[in-house]
Design a protein around this nucleic acid. Structure first.
Length: 797
DNA sequence: TTTTTGCGGGG
DNA sequence: GTGTACGCAAAAA
């Protein structure tokens, strides 16, 4: 008999293994001394069936070890559900198929075993637990204990050991994972290493040489084992680095047994493949950034993302020379090693930056980190609901069938209310917005498919403001979804209160995660693949949203304010002859009338702002305005030069013009500024880099139909023998001369500022960037094209 | 115009 | 592993 011990344990990873007639849960993590250990637990897979037990019983086979009737709730109805407990997880699909013929419904039969365990035992990975257990004999890998008792404490694990890695491959045949891996880099706390199998002269100590690709892969294994990280981080490593290493390892018959139980890397299949290592959380930084963070970038390449989040870029190297240097064992390979290491470093920094949010989502949603990392926001909401369903004694609805999805996708409903602005320049603007409009509507109006059109409130409950339709939500009993979202909002408010006193990055990540989940509820309700989908609930949310926004606008105008623009949850008003005090009084009155936790907030005063119409915007006018704040900050929304590929000179002028008009109210000055710049362009007084237009090559050149300027430049480069790959940025300028634009597009570093086509830049960049602005304040953009003459502008302001 | 297909990230 | 993304733009019909 093994000795019983007590110890503190942070579980960080969970998996299961089939034993004889049961599946054992294994949780890997660290004890209080920071040692990697494992604890094991017994757990039985089960699912629920609704229907007649007499019809169901005959279908059950010898794998079923227990059936039990329990009172549960299923979308607002009390049901007597039959719990079917079996020996192994893989029996469940078999039983499900048999039972769905005779049962009214088979429920929760697709909740993965380890997830079921975490939900039922209310275990959160990354939290501390006091374990009573005895050490198990005969297991490969880390020390393992069988759980006798487990009790949570309030502590969390806060120093995940992260190791980032990155590989460089031979440029030939790497699509099929067939070219050799040339180098692998690692980056962690106080650790950096590049391993390569071509020897060259270098003094860099972090570069390690081996003799073959097989040895390189062997070293990869060893380094991961030696450093024993909690998190192994890569960038797109689910789809590239790990499958690539695995594919090359297979070629050399090397077993990649880096799991803490000495199991091999498990590669995912299909479109959304995920590569997993037992006991070590493999974080694909790309997937998390893409799926969860609301990062506003044009693409999700490492370079772009690192620039946006860290202000750093990838190292520049000339990849066309890689093969040549490799063949010659050139000392220039050192540059590629540095490039490789820098990518690992960026991945590490990004991972460290995002880990607090990942950790918080693990705590709130309750799934393992490797799952949270790879889920979409709607899936996060869904698993958050499934975990809460268990606490509320609710049965989770099934995922919709294919037919059901088609039906849902064809149904549309009315969205948010947009009050289109009359283009113009406005003074003394106030901005109000509803704090978390949709989440607070769901919580305050008890919007929930389970309590919709309840019998108990028929005829007495307030009806959703929809024309010719009667939808109401119970006013006696709280629905499951609305309780849960109310809880999310309240938890967030409490954290924000604490944060007023002291800043804390962990609390900030938590409030951010709570906000993300709350804000995603409405979208989830209307999402065709959602278990808790409800067309009527979703359109009730937007109906109330429109109702309250219009109500505020109506009240404001009655009070003598004037509405100029509104979109979804924000309302822009002007003072007319009112004071700020009167505006505050107005807001207080509105807030007294609003139900529950709904609240209108005062966002601020803007001394002036310009609103521009967006032509051709059918689905509500798109946001396009610029404001100047009381702190004199310029806020620009929706002006296309902010996003699209415009030259720096056009962006600069647009910003300056908005600034002059809004800050100085001097249209004449703005106008003359543009004329002055046009003049400078004509006189070649502007440096060439301000004319550079950057456009990305998105596919192989031969696949392009139309010859856009950047494609023409790329073609010329290819003729010169320079390789162009998709994803590459082409930086070009338009020069003087005859022919189409494409023929006149040249690489920036090939020409001087005298070659610049001044008229092209004035007509196609400068004027379009400010034309709309002058149009709004009643200006003729034709004036700008003329040379010289000063114009008379007094009278416009 | 509507429907279908394929891409994203990596090197 | 009690499983197989999703949303958009370009191409095709």
């Amino acid at each position: 008999m093994a000795k019983m011990t007590k110890f503190k344990f942070y579980p960080l990873y969970i998996t299961y293994k089939e034993a004889e007639d049961e599946a054992l849960i294994y949780m890997y993590g660290r004890n209080e001394n920071g040692e990697q250990i494992c604890v094991s637990d017994h757990f039985r897979p089960y699912f629920w069936v609704l229907g007649d037990l007499n019809l169901i019983k005959p279908e059950l086979d010898e794998t079923v070890i227990e059936t039990k009737i329990e009172k549960k709730e299923y979308i607002g109805e009390e049901v007597e559900a039959i719990k079917i407990v079996t020996t192994l997880p893989r029996n469940i699909p078999v039983l499900k198929d048999k039972l769905k013929e005779v049962a009214v419904a088979v429920l929760e039969a697709d909740i993965l075993f380890v997830r079921r365990y975490l939900i039922d035992k209310e275990i959160v990975l990354g939290q501390e637990y006091e374990i009573q257990g005895e050490e198990m004999p005969i297991r490969k890998g880390v020390r393992t204990y069988e759980i006798q008792a487990i009790k949570g404490t309030e502590k969390s694990y806060e120093n995940e050991k992260v190791l980032a890695f990155d590989i460089e491959t031979h440029p030939e045949k790497n699509e099929e994972f067939e070219g050799p891996i040339l180098m692998i880099s690692f980056y962690g706390e106080n650790f950096k290493k590049v391993i390569t199998w071509k020897h060259f002269r270098t003094t860099e100590k972090y570069i390690e040489f081996v003799n073959s690709e097989a040895d390189l892969i062997q070293r990869f294994k060893e380094v991961v084992e030696e450093l024993n990280p909690d998190v192994l981080a890569g960038y797109f490593s689910d789809g590239f680095d790990l499958p690539y290493i695995a594919s090359r390892a297979k070629k050399y018959k090397i077993k990649l047994e880096i799991g803490l139980d000495h199991s091999e890397i498990r590669l995912g299949k299909g479109a959304n493949k995920s590569s997993r290592i037992t006991g070590i959380t493999h974080v694909d930084v790309y997937k998390f950034i893409r799926n969860i963070t609301q990062l506003d970038v044009d693409d999700f390449r490492l370079d772009t993302v690192a620039n946006a989040l860290l202000g750093e870029n990838k190292k520049q190297v000339d990849f066309t020379k890689l093969v040549e240097h490799w063949e010659n064992s050139s000392k220039d390979l050192e540059e590629f090693c540095k490039y490789n290491l820098h990518d690992a470093k960026l991945t590490y920094e990004l991972c460290k930056r995002l880990l607090p949010q990942l950790v918080e989502l693990v705590k709130i949603v309750g799934l393992p980190m490797e799952d949270v990392n790879r889920l979409s926001v709607s899936q996060l909401v869904e698993w958050f609901l499934i975990r809460n369903a268990h606490k509320f004694n609710q049965l989770a609805p099934n995922k919709p069938s294919h037919d059901e999805i088609s039906k849902r996708m064809s149904k549309r409903y009315k969205g948010a209310f947009v009050y289109e602005p009359k283009p113009g320049l406005y003074k003394n603007i106030m901005l109000f917005d509803f704090r978390s409009l949709y989440p607070t509507i769901i919580a305050s109006h008890n919007i929930d498919p389970g309590v919709m059109n309840c019998k108990c409130c028929a005829g007495t409950a307030q009806k959703v403001p929809l024309e010719n339709e009667d939808i109401w939500f119970c006013e006696k009993e709280k629905g499951f979804l609305s309780s849960v979202i109310g809880d999310l909002i309240e938890r967030r408010i409490r954290i924000k209160e604490i944060m007023k006193k002291q800043k804390n990055p962990f609390l900030d990540a938590r409030q951010d995660s709570l906000k993300l989940l709350a804000n995603s509820f409405y979208g989830y309700l209307g999402f065709y693949a959602a278990r808790w989908y409800s067309f009527d609930a979703a359109r009730s949310v937007t109906a109330y949203g429109r109702y309250y926004v219009k109500k505020v606008i109506g009240s404001a105008e009655k009070q003598g304010f004037k509405a100029i623009y509104s979109d979804t949850d924000s309302i822009f008003l002007t003072f007319e002859d009112k004071t700020k005090q009167e505006a505050m009084k107005f807001m207080d009155k509105i807030n007294k009338e609003l139900p529950g936790i709904m609240e209108l907030e005062f966002e601020g005063i803007y001394p002036s702002g310009i609103f521009v119409s967006v032509k051709g915007a059918e689905y509500g006018a798109k946001k396009k305005y610029a404001l100047i704040s009381e702190k004199d900050e310029l806020i620009i929304k929706g002006f296309e030069t902010v996003r699209r590929n415009w030259s720096p000179i056009a962006k600069e002028v647009q910003k300056k013009v908005l600034s002059i008009i809004l800050k100085e109210s001097d249209a004449e000055k703005a106008f003359n500024y543009v004329k002055k710049i046009a003049d400078k362009i004509r006189k070649k007084q502007i440096e060439i880099k301000k004319f550079t237009i950057k456009t990305q090559i998105t596919k192989p050149i031969e696949e392009y139909g139309a010859i856009a300027p950047h494609v023409a430049v790329a073609k010329k480069l290819i003729e010169k023998g320079i390789e162009i790959v998709p994803g590459q940025m082409i930086e070009y300028v338009i020069t003087k001369g005859k022919g189409r634009i494409g023929d006149r597009a040249k690489l920036t570093n090939e020409v001087t500022k005298d070659d610049i086509d001044s008229e092209y830049y004035i007509k196609n960049q400068l004027i379009p960037s400010v034309g709309k602005i002058f149009e709004v304040i009643g200006f003729d953009e034709g004036e700008l094209e003329k040379e010289g003459s000063q114009s008379k502008l007094s009278g416009f302001f």
